[in-house]
Amino acid sequence: MSDSDVPLVSVVVSARGNTQNIRSLLNALAKQTLPAGQMEAVVVDNDLPGPVRPIADAVGDGDWPFPVRVLYEPTPGLSAGRNRGICAARGQYVAITDPDITPDPGWLQALVTAIEEETVFAVGGRTDLEYPGGQVTTLTKALRECHGAVDWPERREFAEWPYWVTGCNLLFERQTALDIGLFRTDLGRRGRWMGDCEDLEFVDRARQHGHQTLIEPTALASHPVYRPETTLRYFLRQGVGHGVCVARMHLSVMVEPAAIQASREDMHAAFIGLAAGWTFLDRSRAVEAARDLARISAYHFERGRLRLLGRRPIALAQQPPKKESPAWT
């Protein structure tokens, strides 16, 4: 293969049970202002094993102006699927996204321009959430943040608190990612398990190695939020998954204290919020408090489990063992 055949950007998408969206995503990629000759799409089939591969069928009969490859990853999990695609990608840069994302035509070009102008490791774009029937008006900000970032800078900013990147809208240097390690497979969604934080841990770990990540708000993409994702059941499951994954993040990165919020005071505030929401029939406030109780409980349970397994957090592994400090919460 000649150098001229190597794409600049490989768009990696891992799909499981959402085959119908793959063609829509590829059609949106075909409308990108980045020349088609500078990109390729790597679709990872992470569906259940079986003789029928609907993802390959959906992609195989399409006619797109860039190469499209379909790979199969039998290990379930979003991180496992993305890692498979990253390893097989041929581009200098890798852009990861999801099947149901709708990127603006200038999405890829904005990401590439930012990473080359600022000489950073990664660039995350702005992802706008689209709620069914205006449901966003009934949700608190904390509940909306369960679906993705809500606050975005007006101009380029480093991906540091209170801003963070989303895994469905992220571009990074492939070789550097291979050097520091790809997404942790014990984080992120896996089947019905609603894990997350794989993208945050990935970016934080890169920062610990001296590689910065930037947010480019002009790299726009939209992400639909489905009605089942606005229910109490969803938020409780999401809270448990988030609490477990934040506890696991401690094993490899220093977690921002504002992202933990699992102290006794936070637990007390959640109980008060639950009582107030129930008393005053404020459903969103009650759901937020219930989700916080589930998240905090899961966080401390997972911390205890990891401690019993002898897996010490990175903050304590670098110093002699000492008595547990409340600063960890």
Rank of each mutant, 00 (worst) to 15 (best):
V203R: 02
A41R: 02
A41F: 00
C197M: 13
G310T: 11
E265K: 06
R192D: 04
E154M: 10
G239C: 11
S325Y: 12
L26H: 01
C168H: 02
T75C: 08
R184S: 06
S79G: 07
E256D: 15
R303P: 01
G239V: 04
E116V: 11
W164C: 03
D45G: 12
L182I: 06
G81M: 04
T176A: 12
S297Q: 03
W278C: 02
G188P: 03
Q92T: 14
A317F: 10
G181D: 13
G62M: 15
L29R: 03
Q175E: 08
A290I: 06
V59W: 01
L309F: 13
I272S: 11
G85A: 15
W193V: 14
I86F: 09
S10I: 04
G195V: 12
G210K: 14
L78W: 01
A269C: 09
T113Y: 03
G243T: 03
Q20L: 07
Y226P: 00
P321H: 07
Q238C: 14
R192F: 07
R312M: 10
G239A: 04
N27D: 13
R184I: 05
T119D: 09
R237G: 05
I96R: 00
P105A: 09
P74K: 14
P217T: 11
E216Q: 10
L78T: 11
K322Y: 09
S10L: 05
L8K: 08
L182R: 03
G239T: 05
G167E: 02
A89T: 06
R227N: 12
T176N: 09
E265F: 07
R295E: 02
I55L: 12
V68R: 12
E173K: 08
S14Q: 02
M1W: 11
R144L: 10
V9F: 08
P217C: 03
Y299V: 01
Q38W: 13
I22H: 03
V136D: 15
A258R: 10
A95Q: 02
E216M: 08
A270K: 00
G241P: 00
G37E: 11
T140A: 06
Q135P: 02
I22P: 00
L293Y: 04
I86S: 02
Q208W: 03
D292G: 10
R192W: 07
A88R: 12
H268W: 15
V6Q: 15
T166L: 04
W164V: 00
Q208M: 14
P162R: 15
A286D: 03
R285D: 05
I296Q: 04
Y93N: 01
F183K: 04
G181H: 08
K322H: 13
P217I: 07
R174L: 03
L214K: 07
P320I: 09
F280E: 12
P326M: 15
A315F: 08
I101D: 00
A286M: 06
G124H: 01
R174S: 00
P67C: 10
G210C: 13
L8D: 11
F235W: 03
V203F: 01
G241I: 03
Q238V: 13
G277Y: 07
L214T: 01
G60L: 14
A275V: 10
P54L: 02
T137S: 13
V136R: 13
A58L: 02
E198M: 13
P103S: 13
E117G: 14
I314Y: 04
L200M: 12
A28V: 08
Y72V: 15
A88E: 10
H223V: 09
R174M: 01
P54W: 05
R264G: 11
E117D: 06
M267G: 07
R205M: 05
N21V: 06
D47R: 15
I260W: 03
